[in-house]
């Protein structure tokens, strides 16, 4: 084969992949924008979700993501701090890393099974926002741990040494030097986790999701959510009545676009900031 033929194949593959994405995004945006309106975002679902809006699902997804972050961010960032600042590579760090890598590979439906048997049933939390949020927290934990670790490792050694040389303790150095410098990197990881947690369906379907449009009063109530609502609409509606499903998918896609774009901006800022 001549080089120019190979170049043509590689260009074609790449353009094809980009076209697939544009096609999917275009499909959801075109179909979904017909449904999108202020009423759609603020009304409750009617007629099994085929009419009305998706307000309880939006609210539920926000609650679930907030609970997931409240649980997973301290564990992930704290764990990363331990790996970077407190421990040399040894058997303990190997175990920590192995655990995180393994957890990262677990399929989402298994998180659903586990969340149900452990949180809903064994700990008797019931099907509720807390159970669903904690299940999601377990899912995003490995990502948070890894991205935070990368961010913490990027802090230059001489900055820390300078702090120690001035007589600061380890905790002061972490608080005044390490965390502020790695903040944008850590936030990048958190933003990416938000996108992932908001779009996951399988982990919350047994642990938090209900179909009735009831607004939850506390974290011990079950809730609707965007992905589970979309799943129900797509699997149960007839093709003519899918308008609200398209609208729900569009809201999810917009969320993903926002989180991905802000993560990219943050990463740019982060690399510039660290290189200085």
């Amino acid at each position: 084969m001549k080089d120019k033929h190979v170049y043509a194949i590689l260009w074609t593959s790449t353009i094809l992949t980009a076209t697939i994405l544009i096609f999917i995004l275009g499909f959801v945006v075109l179909k979904g924008s017909a449904a999108l309106s202020i009423e759609f975002l603020t009304d409750i679902p009617r007629e099994g979700g085929e009419a009305g809006g998706i307000f309880p699902a939006i609210l539920g997804t926000i609650y679930l993501v907030v609970v997931a972050l409240v649980v997973a961010v301290p564990l992930g960032v704290g764990g990363a701090l331990y790996l970077v600042e407190f421990q040399k590579e040894n058997i303990v760090t190997k175990i920590i890393r192995f655990g995180a890598d393994t957890l990262n590979a677990v399929p989402s439906i298994i998180f659903g099974l586990f969340g149900f048997v452990f949180l809903v049933y064994y700990l008797k939390l019931g099907v509720c926002i807390l159970s669903g949020g904690v299940t999601l927290a377990f899912m995003i934990l490995p990502t948070l741990l890894r991205t935070s670790e990368e961010a913490l490792r990027a802090v230059p050694g001489w900055d820390k040494e300078g702090s120690y040389a001035l007589g600061a303790t380890k905790l002061q150095t972490i608080k005044n030097i390490v965390l502020p410098q790695s903040l944008s990197g850590i936030i990048t990881g958190i933003v990416l986790s938000i996108g992932r947690a908001a779009g996951e369906t399988a982990p919350i379907i047994f642990t938090a999701a209900i179909l009735n449009p009831v607004l939850p009063k506390s974290v011990f109530d079950p809730t609707m959510s965007l992905p589970s609502h979309l799943y129900t609409l797509v699997s149960e509606s007839t093709p003519e009545k899918l308008v609200n499903a398209y609208g729900t998918a569009l809201v999810l896609i917009i969320l993903v676009l926002i989180t991905t774009y802000s993560a990219m901006l943050l990463r740019k800022y982060f690399t510039r900031h660290v290189r200085r």
Binding site: L75, G79, L103, L141, L145
Partner: peptide
Amino acid sequence: FALSATLV
């Protein structure tokens, strides 16, 4: 905190 993923 670091061991939480392993515990899960």
